[in-house]
Design a protein around this nucleic acid. Sequence first.
DNA 1: AACGAGAGACAA
DNA 2: TGTCTCTCGTTC
Length: 775
Amino acid sequence: MLTAPDATGPASPRLHSTGVPDAIDVLFPLPLGPLSYLAPLQTGEGETAVGRRVVVPWQSSVRVGLVAASRAVDAGRGLELRHALRYLDEAPFLGRDQLRAVDAVARATGVPAGLVLATLGVPGLTPELAHEVRLHEAPAAAELFGELPTGRWLPGERLGAKELDVLRAQGLVDEAVRVVRHTRRVLVPRRRADADLDGERRANQRRALERLHALGEADSAAALARDADVPESAVRALVEKGYAAYVEVEAPLPPLPGPPLLDDRLEDPPPGAAVTGGDGYVAGGSRRARLSALLPTLASDLAAGRSVVVVAPENVLAREAAGLLATRLPVRYLTGEATDEQREALFAELPAGGPVVLVGSHVALLAPVPSLGRIVVLEAGNQTHKLRSGGRLWVPKAAQRVAAAAGASLTLTDVAPSPELLAMGGEAGGTLLPLPRLRVHVADMSGSAGWPLHPDLLLTFRQVVQRERQAIVLAPRRGFSGAYGCQNCGWQAPCPNCDLTLRFHRDEGRLRCHQCGHDQPLPQACPQCGHLELGALKGAGTQWVLSQLERAAPGFPGFRFDADRRDDLSPLYAGEPGVIVGTTAVLRLAPLPELSLVAVTLFDVHLALADFRAEHEALRMLLQVAELATGRRPLLLVQTFAPGAPALRAVASAAPDVAVEALLAAQLERRRRFGYPPFTTLAKVQVTARDRSGAHAAAHAVADRLRVAGARDDEVLGPEAAPVARVKGRYTFQLLIRAWDEARLEGLLAAVPDRLPGARVAVDVDPVDVGELLE
DNA sequence: AACGAGAGACAA
DNA sequence: TGTCTCTCGTTC
C-alpha cells in the first residue's frame, strides 16, 4: 500500500524557512488553470515539489494533479487553502521544461493550462484512487458523524460531501489515499507437501503441489491441473486443505508496443541533406526521402547526447516513421493507442535512460525525454495537426513552444514548402528535395458532356482495365451524392437541425446529415411541388463514382475506401487489378504496386476551401498522390472547372520545382500584403446560442469588449454568421482577431469572456478554416 | 470535464 | 407537489 505513513490531520500548516507556509499550484487534466493548496505535510525539507504528482482534496473526494509551481502562500490566504494530501512521486514526473511549455502554450492560445495537459496526453493523472477517512474523537461534532465510528479507517464514500467538507475545515478527519493497481487472482503455494499427502490416492495432489512450487504461481486451478496433468479436483483439494491459496497480485502491464519491424532499411540520406544544428525544414521528395534526409541531423543530435521527439499527424504515419527510423536509430514509439498506464510507465522510465528518438503522435510532445534537443514535426501542413478534441491546439505551433521552453530546435517536414514551413523552420536551414515528377492530364469539365466522369477519365480507365492494372479515383465526399431532392423544382432535402442539405446514401436508401448524424428514410414526394421524381442532385460521392466505373467496366474489381467503408485492399497489394474509389483518406495508403492511374474527380473542391491556405492544400493533395505509386509514374488525371489553377499548372509544369517555388513566393507576398499568417497570428472566436438573435447579440458583445480593451479596427474582423449558420440546432456567429505579434494577441484574448448569458464562446487560436472574413 | 444547485416543464 | 430535464456556475 502506498498510503502515506502519516496522514494529514489538523496540524498547523507546514512552515517555509521564511516562516510562511508553502503553497503549491496544482494543474488537473481539466479545462482549468492552476488551483492552490497548502503543500502536503509529508515532504522532507528541500525537496522540490514542482513537476511531482500530488493527491488533493477535490469536492467530496480526492483526485490527482500536477504541481506547476511552489511558492509562499499569499498573505492572509493560508487559512482558506486546504492541504494537499500526499505526493505520488519521489522525483518530478514532468520536467520544468515541459511545465514551462504547458504554461507558454496555455497563455498563447487561451486554452486553460490543465486542458493543455489533457490535450497533449500527459498520462498518469487519472489513476483509480482508494480513499479512506478516519474521524477524530470529538464529542462536540458527534452529530456530524451520525452513526460512524471514530478512530477507525473507513472508505471515503461513507461520508457525504457536505460532512467531509465541514470535517476537513475543522480538522476533524484524517485522510489516506493509495493508487489502486489492477490486480489478478493467482494460485500460489502455501505449504510444502507433508505426511497428509502421502500415499497412492494423494499422488495427484502431491504432483500438482510440487509443480506449483516449481512454477511459483499458476493463473488458475484449471491451468495448474493442465500443467501438472492431474484432474482439477486434485488442485481444488490442495486449496481446501490450505497447501495452496488464491492471492491478488498486481497485474503486469502489457508491454508498450515498440516501433514496427521492417524488412527493408531506410535509404541513405540523399546528397544535399546535411546536419542542421538549429531550426530547419525538409520539403519535397517522398515521405521516405524526407525521413532519410533527417537522418544526419538526428544522428548528430543523439551523438551530442540529446533526445529528439518526432511528431506525426496521425497514428498510421507515426507508425510508418517509427518503423523506418528504427532501422537506423534507437527509437521509442508512443501514440494515444497505448493505454494511460503504459504511457505513464514510459514517462516514468524515460528520464533515467539515454538519449532517444521518440516517435509518435502529439501525445509524445510533452514526454520527459532526457535532454530534449529537437522536435521534428512530420507533414507539418497536414490538417490533422489541428487538434479537434480538447483544446484546439495546432501541433506545429505547440511543438515550437515546447522546443523553445527546452532550448531545443524545431524541424518541420512537408511535401511542399509553405509560408509556415519557412517561417517556423528558419529560412536558413532548409532542405528542398526534388519534387516528384507527375504525368498530368487536365480534363476540363466546363461544357463537357460527362458528369460526374469526363470521357477522358473513362477512356484511360478502360485502358487500366484492359492492361489489368490499378487505379485510384478520388471523390470529394463519401456517400452517393452531395444532395438529394426534386428533379422537377430543385428542392433539396434539408437537415432539420443544421443549415445543410442531407447526404444521399444510396446503398442504405437513407438520407444522412454528416454534421449532426440525423438519419431519415427517403421522402416519397417533393414537399414543395409534389413531384414524385426524386433523386441524386449534384456532387458525386464515392458510391456514385464507383457505380459509374462499375458500369464502364463490368466485373472489374472495385473497392471503396472512405469513412463509411474501408474495403479489404489486400488483393491490390498482392498485385491484382482493381480500382479504389475513396475520399482523401486514400492519401494515407501505402504505395500500390501496379498503380497506373490516379484521378481527381473534382479538383475545385480543394481550391474552394475559402481559406487562405487553400492553394497550398490543393498542391499538397496533388503531390501526395504521387506517393501512392511505387516506381512507375502513374498518370494523374484531374477533372476541374478551373484548368488554369496555379497549383495545378505548377505540378503539371516541366520544371515543377521552379514553378512551386514561384508559387510559394507569390503566396508569401499575398500573405504579407493582406496580413495573413505567418505574418500575423489569428484567433477565431465562435459564439453560439440557441436562437439566432442571441448569437448575433452575444457576438457583438464580444466585439465591443475587444474594442473597449483597445482593439483596433484591423485587429477585429466580423462578427459574421458562420459559413454553416446553424449546426445541431445552435446558431453560430464568429469573429476573427488578428494580431501582429503574439503578446498583443494574448492581451486581446484576455478581453474575450469565457461565456455570456445564454451563449457559449469558444476561442480557436491558429484556426485552419478561417472563411472569407479577410477578403 | 464533472458535478450539484436552481429554474422551468409536465403530470397528477 | 413531485419528478424530470436543462442551464449555469464551481472546482483551491
